[in-house]
C-alpha cells in the first residue's frame, strides 16, 4: 500500500501506511517517527505514532502542511520502500527493541474474569489461554486512550477475538485485557470493552517519575505469571513507591 498524507486540520498532518494494525507496520512507523524527530523541521510540536499511521502536530505560524509534505516526503519514501508489499516481516527482521520488560501478571480467575469465555470461543482450555498469552513477547505498538495505556501486539492468533458486545463501565486499574490482535493494560480504572484475562501490580503512569510513562512505543514486553499473594504484595509496594519494575534489558543497538 502506498503511504498517504491525510490533512487533520491546520495544525496536524497524518501519514498513513496501511489499514491494518500489524507489528511490522508499527515498527516502520516508529522508524519514521525517529527519522522525522532527527530532521528538526521548524514548527513541529510533536509526533504521535499510532498503529498504522503517525501524526505530526505543527504550529501553522511556523510551518504549513505543504512545507511539511515537501520536507517529509523523502523520509516517507525511504521507509515505505523498505516495507514489503505484504507486510509479512518475521520478527527476526525487526529492529531490536530499545528496552525489554518483564511485567508481572496474575492470571488467577478472580483477576481474569473473561478467560473462560476466551477459552470457549477459541476452543482452548483456560490454562492454555493463560499459557499462550504469557509465552510470547509483545511490542508496544502505540500508547493512547489514557496516559501510559499501551497497545501491545501481536497476540497469538488463537487468542484473537472481537471486543465484548457490551463494554464494562469500570475496568479495574492494572487489568490486562485482549481483543482483536492486541493486548492492553489499563493504567487507571476506566470503562472498557476488552476481555480481562489478568492483573498487573505495575504502575504504568506516574507523573512523579522522571519518565512518567513506564513504556515507550517500540519497547518489548513479556508477562511473568505471579500468584494472588504476590500481586497483593507488589501492589502494596508499588503504592508506597517502594517498587517499580526496571527493564530486564536495555539494548545499545538503538
Amino acid at each position: 500500500m502506498q503511504p498517504r498524507f491525510l490533512p487533520a486540520g491546520d495544525s496536524a498532518l497524518t501519514i498513513e501506511f496501511g489499514d491494518t494494525a500489524e507489528l511490522s507496520l508499527s515498527m516502520r512507523i516508529q522508524e519514521l517517527c525517529h527519522r522525522i524527530g532527527q530532521t528538526r523541521v521548524q514548527g513541529i510540536i510533536e509526533i504521535v505514532p499510532a498503529l498504522r499511521s503517525l501524526t505530526v502536530h505543527y504550529d501553522p505560524c511556523l510551518c504549513s502542511a505543504a512545507r511539511l509534505r515537501v520536507a517529509l516526503l523523502p523520509l516517507v519514501i525511504e521507509v515505505a520502500s523498505a516495507l514489503p508489499a505484504e507486510a509479512d516481516l518475521v520478527e527476526a527482521e525487526l529492529q531490536p527493541a530499545a528496552r525489554r520488560w518483564s511485567i508481572p501478571a496474575c492470571y488467577e480467575p478472580e483477576h481474569g474474569p473473561d478467560v473462560e469465555e476466551i477459552a470457549s470461543a477459541s476452543g482452548l482450555l483456560p490454562w492454555q489461554v493463560r499459557a499462550l498469552h504469557a509465552c510470547v513477547s509483545y511490542r508496544v505498538l502505540m500508547l493512547g486512550f489514557m496516559p501510559g495505556h499501551p497497545y501491545l501486539g501481536d497476540l497469538p492468533p488463537p487468542l484473537r477475538v472481537p471486543r465484548r458486545a457490551t463494554p464494562r463501565t469500570v475496568v479495574p486499574a492494572g487489568s490486562i485485557a485482549i481483543a482483536t490482535s492486541m493486548c492492553v493494560i489499563y493504567p487507571i480504572a476506566s470503562p472498557g470493552g476488552w476481555h480481562i484475562i489478568g492483573r498487573t501490580p505495575v504502575r504504568l503512569f506516574d507523573q512523579a517519575r522522571a519518565e512518567p510513562s513506564l513504556l515507550s512505543p517500540g519497547d518489548e514486553v513479556r508477562f511473568c505469571p505471579i500468584s494472588s499473594s504476590e500481586l497483593a504484595e507488589l501492589s502494596e509496594a508499588a503504592d508506597r513507591g517502594a517498587w517499580t519494575p526496571v527493564p530486564v534489558w536495555t539494548g545499545d543497538a538503538v
Binding site: G9, A50, L54, T55, G144
Partner: peptide
C-alpha cells in the same frame, strides 16, 4: 470503525 489513529484538535 477504523484502526485507531491520532486525534487532532477540532477533529
Amino acid at each position: 470503525d477504523i484502526v485507531s489513529d491520532a486525534i487532532a484538535p477540532g477533529a
